[in-house]
Amino acid sequence: MAEHTIKAFDQEMDKLRGLIAEMGGRAESAIEKAMLALQRHDKVMAADVVAEDKRIDAIEAEVEKLAIEIIALRAPMANDLRDVIAALKIVGVVERIGDYAKNIAKRVPLIAANQRTQEPIALLPSMGQVAGEMVQDALNAFAARDADLAVAVIERDTVVDDFYNSVFRTLVTFMVENPKTISECAHLLFIAKNIERIGDHATNVAEMVYYAATGQTLPDRERGGAQAED
């Protein structure tokens, strides 16, 4: 795309994109580390995830400030306007994604080491990986203005939903068979739900990216399936 006649405008837009890329990278790494901490029962790593969420929150505030400045001072139009508005909305959603990763990490120390049920725990990291990749791809699509990649992210949400349904059934079976695992399985159920929500939020980000890139909103049929409520 051609550069703006006013170079400082380009620099501000680049900074906005840079911050969102950083935020996306941090959110994805928070999901990955939270899953790893769960698998290894690593309380230190889990505490790291909680601490690092502060940076995600700080980036959200920084993007909001910059976006408002750009709107006030540059009066962006057309694709620039759509990019700034999308950035403003995306950071709000990615901040929530960061919170879900933090919530997952906070549950790690609550699951006692001697009561860990290996089978469902083994299912969760693959689910987390798919959700994390969705987050990363959605933000890569924003950086590259790639509407096709955004659509691909939206389509992948059903994978996460299917994972969730499978984990749910497995955990219920475990709880029925062995009531001693209920406390642990309840935590794991919440974790699975958090990951499922991350997938939904990544889908929302992808929809905003699609709008920013094309100026069109997606027709309903292309939206991801099973959008469970919070």
Partner: peptide
């Protein structure tokens, strides 16, 4: 061309 003009990318 419209986009380049109204977003300040013209010329």
């Amino acid at each position: 061309r419209t986009k380049d003009y109204i977003t300040g990318r013209y010329g």
